[in-house]
Design a binder for these strands. Structure first.
Lengths: 150, 150
DNA sequence: TTGCTGAACAAGAATCATTCTTATATAGTA
DNA sequence: TACTATATAAGAATGATTCTTGTTCAGCAA
């Protein structure tokens, strides 16, 4: 069920690879497709499992390498984490995260006031800031509920 | 070279432990002291190394357990990371981070405009937000310099 | 002060995520 | 179609963290 938008994204993917001299392999294409059809913040192993149906003998190492590559290129974002396995964000539009420190759940949200934040002077000229975002740390509703119940 | 402020912090540490029914052990005290005298964002192993001088046979497992405990209590903050070893922030005052995605360097900064951010309605009531901060992702000056040189 | 008990600890094994090594396969190009 | 650099699979190796087990000790009570 590849929508027209996905087709366009795939075309864009090919173009980007070509522009950077990267081979367009079936593995990379499959991983890219798995990513753009994700509505969550998958770990490397999640992507591996989703792709394995079509590529039973893909190596998980390939998924690690490819996701790392995609993050460098900007096809995905590496999500800020707290010591667990790396997670990726297929949504590269500006948005923000609530992070449950108990269960690890990530809740996306947009907030115009937060989008208006400007990079401070100190970093504007010496450093290359590619992303500025707000992170909320706390305990999510589900975990709070569990605490009350027990 | 424990300053008066450190002494006060230590007293506070003891009081907090007592209030929570936690034993005040020499190991915990040493780890706490190592933390509050840190000006950086140490990994567990860094703290282990700093404490080892005074406690040659401390187990690194104790450091892992203790730092995890301290983060839960709020003695330190677990720093948002990108897949490497956990890092802790002894500075629990509101501040923000620039993170170099190439070398992992963390630069602290304060910014009154960012401190004024309010938790969005959506999370205000259902979730317990303990921290709200701005994260800048990018490449630091040192890494940019290296890129130019090579 | 001493003895008791649950909490905390040390040591090392085990696990999980990730990267490295090496030999093979293949995408893109001549 | 053949060539070459790039990419891949497989499995070993590494690094970070957690678990297991037996021992020790902090805090409390007698």
């Amino acid at each position: 069920m590849i929508s027209r938008t996905s087709k366009e994204l795939l075309e864009q993917f090919r173009a980007q690879c070509k522009a950077r001299g990267l081979s367009i392999t079936p593995q990379r294409t499959a991983i890219y497709e798995a990513l753009i059809s994700s509505q969550d913040h998958p770990r490397t192993e999640d992507i591996y499992n989703r792709v394995k149906a079509a590529f039973p003998d893909m190596s998980i190492d390939t998924v690690y390498r490819t996701l790392c590559l995609f993050a460098e290129i900007g096809f995905v974002h590496l999500v800020e984490g707290y010591g667990e396995a790396k997670r990726y964000d297929p949504d590269t539009e500006r948005h923000h995260h609530f992070r449950c420190m108990r269960c690890g759940r990530i809740l996306d949200f947009t907030e115009p006031r937060f989008d208006a934040l400007e990079v401070p002077e100190r970093f504007k000229h010496n450093c290359a800031v590619s992303n500025i975002k707000v992170v909320l740390e706390g305990v999510c509703d589900q975990c709070l509920q569990k605490t009350i119940e027990s």
